[in-house]
Amino acid sequence: MLNTIQIYIEFARKSFQQSLQYRIANYSGLAVNTFFFIVRAYVFMALFENRGDVAGYNVTEIITFTGITQAILMVVGIFGTLEIANAVKSGEVAVELMKPIDYQFVMLFRQFGRSLYYFFFRGLPIFLVMMIFFKWTLPHSLIALLLFFISLILAVMITFSFNFMVGMSAFWLLDARGFSGIMMGAGLLLSGFMLPVSFFPSKLGKICEWLPYIGQSYTPVAIYLGKYTGMTMISMLLRQFAWVVILMLFDKAIMRLAMRKLIIQGG
């Protein structure tokens, strides 16, 4: 047991190191994320001019919302990745599936390694820009900060599960780009990444709180800002956790089906 965990952690470590290689790519990505943060922050500042609270947010809170969503964007990987789908398409996945370790967990830990890298080299710098140049707000409480990190890990796992699902779909669709685009498009809006769900028409906002997407982005941010506190916060965290379990099990089932298909094709 301990040995297996060590193997998975090794995968995370390796993917962290691998990410370190792409320095120029990271600087340019950082510039792009920061640009988007600045634009969105100015948009909200203009909207909130001479206004008090709107949809439960004041201007510093909405700036902080924008800063954190941009900071965790790459940590969570909300734009999706075709890494697994491409491995299926090229046939590389066959070799991976032959190994006596769980492919799903290998990929999850690789994502953890990448997420940790992006936390330090993408997330923190963007947060720093916000701290220096904009009016922002501290986490609601120390507990909120702590739970923010737990929620963030769950957010990584939900997004990973979606990506894995898209990847596995390539066994049937061959080209997963379309499915990926549809999933990602829905996720960008429904996750509360672009806009807090409290800005949505109220019925839609309520529905969103029960969907898995919200756990990709809004739940951690809302916990940081104290928009979810007490029982609501616990309930939102439990929903996030429940979706992680459901999606991971679902993915596992799909992977089993895919492996059967793989054997039929003969690799």
Binding site: D175, R177, F179, G181, I182, M184, A186
Partner: peptide
């Protein structure tokens, strides 16, 4: 695949 990608691009 083509149609799904067009729809995906539309939605995104």
């Amino acid at each position: 695949s083509f149609i799904m990608q067009v729809i995906g691009n539309f939605i995104v």
